Simulated scan of single mutants.
Amino acid sequence: MKELLEFLVTSLVEHPEQVDISSTEEGDTVTFQVKVHADDVGRVIGRQGRVAKAIRNVVSAAAYRQKKRVFVDIQS
């Protein structure tokens, strides 16, 4: 799942070398913290959060197959 999230985010940003994804896992819940360059935050979130919601939906679908629950937190 982390590789999928990294692929999606790095494809969207102008500074892919500054994408940092960390994760914490508690039981069947995984939380990803996505840090991007300040100029790229708008690209990852999108208008009214549409891009962020789409990223969360794709990662959640992948997590569902592994019977996990996923949260994606986007930070600058």
Rank of each mutant, 00 (worst) to 15 (best):
12 L>S: 04
30 V>G: 02
19 V>N: 09
7 F>Q: 09
49 G>Y: 04
20 D>Q: 15
62 A>D: 11
10 T>M: 11
69 R>F: 10
19 V>P: 11
22 S>K: 13
58 V>G: 04
47 R>P: 00
6 E>F: 11
55 I>C: 06
18 Q>G: 00
30 V>P: 06
65 R>F: 00
39 D>Y: 01
30 V>Y: 03
67 K>T: 03
7 F>Y: 14
28 D>I: 07
19 V>D: 07
36 V>G: 04
67 K>A: 10
10 T>H: 02
71 F>M: 13
44 V>F: 06
43 R>Y: 04
50 R>D: 11
65 R>H: 08
36 V>L: 09
72 V>C: 10
54 A>H: 01
54 A>W: 03
27 G>F: 06
21 I>G: 10
16 P>I: 08
61 A>W: 05
65 R>E: 09
54 A>T: 09
58 V>M: 14
27 G>P: 11
47 R>Y: 07
4 L>Q: 03
15 H>R: 12
28 D>G: 00
47 R>W: 00
35 K>G: 03
17 E>Y: 10
31 T>P: 02
66 Q>N: 08
36 V>I: 11
21 I>C: 08
76 S>R: 12
23 S>L: 10
63 A>N: 02
21 I>A: 06
30 V>E: 01
48 Q>L: 09
12 L>A: 07
14 E>T: 10
44 V>W: 04
68 K>G: 07
17 E>N: 14
65 R>K: 12
10 T>F: 01
4 L>S: 03
39 D>G: 00
57 N>I: 11
14 E>L: 06
28 D>E: 13
44 V>P: 07
1 M>Y: 08
70 V>G: 06
11 S>Y: 01
44 V>I: 10
42 G>Q: 04
14 E>D: 15
27 G>L: 06
57 N>Y: 12
35 K>T: 13
73 D>N: 14
25 E>I: 10
5 L>C: 02
36 V>R: 02
30 V>M: 09
19 V>T: 05
27 G>K: 03
50 R>F: 03
20 D>G: 06
30 V>S: 06
45 I>R: 05
16 P>K: 09
17 E>K: 15
8 L>W: 06
44 V>Y: 06
76 S>F: 06
24 T>V: 14
51 V>D: 04
27 G>I: 05
16 P>D: 08
65 R>L: 04
59 V>T: 02
29 T>E: 14
25 E>T: 13
51 V>F: 08
72 V>E: 11
21 I>M: 09
70 V>D: 07
46 G>C: 10
41 V>M: 14
34 V>Q: 08
18 Q>N: 15
51 V>Y: 00
4 L>K: 01
50 R>N: 10
24 T>G: 12
13 V>Y: 06
